[in-house]
Computed example of a mutant assay.
Amino acid sequence: MTTYLTTPQGRHIAYHKTPGREPGVVFLGGFRSDMTGSKALHLQAWAEATGRAFLRFDYSGHGASRGAFVDGCVGDWREDAAAVIEVLTEGPQVLVGSSMGGWIALLLARYMPERVAGLIGIAAAPDFTERMWESEFSLADRTTLLEEGVVLRPSDYSDEPYPITRRLIDDGRRNLVLDQPLPVPMPVRLLQGTADTDVPPSVAFGLFDHIESPDLRLTLVKGADHRFSTPACLELITNSVDDVLHNCDAVVSDDTGLLQKSNIG
């Protein structure tokens, strides 16, 4: 049976909560993904085995949550995430954001830092709507978007194209995190596959340089793609969560960060 939370904005969000000790862990999924993916379920199994509180959910218009995907935007999905954290968790949480979920995690760290104990970004995709507009859209795409309000884009994960709306692009510009200083005053771990063609390593390097954090590390996994869901990658995710949980209360004076490389893909 699916459990729903009604947000202050009136959206109905499906979620699954695993009870356990705090700080808890919250999984933030990617664009057009849902809470039944391998990373979310792996984290739930880890939480159940370790007695850690864990929360996974679907943004509005995603998975089991209500609403139409085409009506949503990053700002809406940030509000959804904020609502489930405020209502369904206690105290600071470790956020695990996959792809777009990494962008949303960074927004939450900006707007509600008191509820964020640490952050793990898996192929984090901050400001992806702006990169899409500037680097991926053809002139025909831009014209269609401006005139019709929506353009259909092919997907590597589905036979059906997915809609990109003008609202999504416009709202994305109101939620950029790379156009201004980005202080994240808690432990941050960025995980990135070198074979990721959806969010290439250059995005991770740029984010690593841009984030201001007292405890920041970037781990590259050679050969891993955007799914980042091989057994070795899943183990790296839970190891990173363990690392952040062990260090979330530490204050590190050196803000230069660390860069690690891994060949476990």
Score class of each variant (00 low, 15 high):
Ser155Gly: 14
Met186Pro: 14
Gly63His: 14
Thr165Lys: 02
Val116Pro: 10
Leu119Gly: 00
Glu114Pro: 06
Arg11Leu: 04
Asp58His: 09
Asp249Ile: 03
Ala123Cys: 05
Gln180Asn: 15
Lys39Asn: 09
Leu176Pro: 12
Leu216Glu: 03
Arg173Ile: 12
Pro154Trp: 07
Ala109Glu: 01
Pro214Asp: 02
Asp159Thr: 10
Gly257Pro: 15
Leu236Gln: 15
Leu220Thr: 13
Ser240Asp: 08
Val87Leu: 05
Thr50Leu: 04
Val150Gln: 01
Leu95Met: 10
Val203Tyr: 01
Gly91Phe: 02
Gln9Ser: 05
Asp127Glu: 00
His42Met: 15
Arg56Gly: 11
Thr50Ile: 00
Ser99Gln: 06
Leu216Arg: 06
Thr256Phe: 09
Arg21Phe: 12
Val94Leu: 15
Glu79Ala: 13
Pro187Ser: 05
Arg110Ser: 03
Ser65Pro: 12
Asp225Phe: 09
Leu176Trp: 02
Thr129Cys: 00
Glu235His: 13
Ser33Met: 08
Ile264Asn: 14
Leu106Thr: 03
Leu220Cys: 15
Thr194Glu: 07
Gln180Phe: 12
Thr7Gly: 00
Asp254Gln: 03
Asp196Ala: 06
Gly102Ile: 03
Asp254Ser: 08
Arg11Glu: 01
Leu146Thr: 07
Gln192Gly: 14
Ala109Leu: 03
Leu218Phe: 07
Val96Tyr: 11
Asp80Cys: 12
Thr7Leu: 00
Leu218Met: 05
His246Tyr: 03
Ala47Met: 09
Leu106Gln: 01
Ile264Trp: 05
Gly63Ile: 09
Thr3Ser: 11
Glu114Asp: 04
Asn239Thr: 12
Ala83Asp: 05
Gly67Asp: 06
Ala82Gln: 04
Leu216Asp: 13
Leu207Val: 01
Val251Asn: 04
Gly102Asn: 11
Gly193His: 07
Pro19Leu: 06
Arg167Met: 13
Pro187Ala: 05
Thr219Arg: 15
Glu90Cys: 13
Glu130Ile: 04
Gln260Glu: 09
Ser99Ile: 13
Arg227Gln: 12
His12Thr: 08
Ala140Lys: 11
Glu22Leu: 07
Leu28Thr: 14
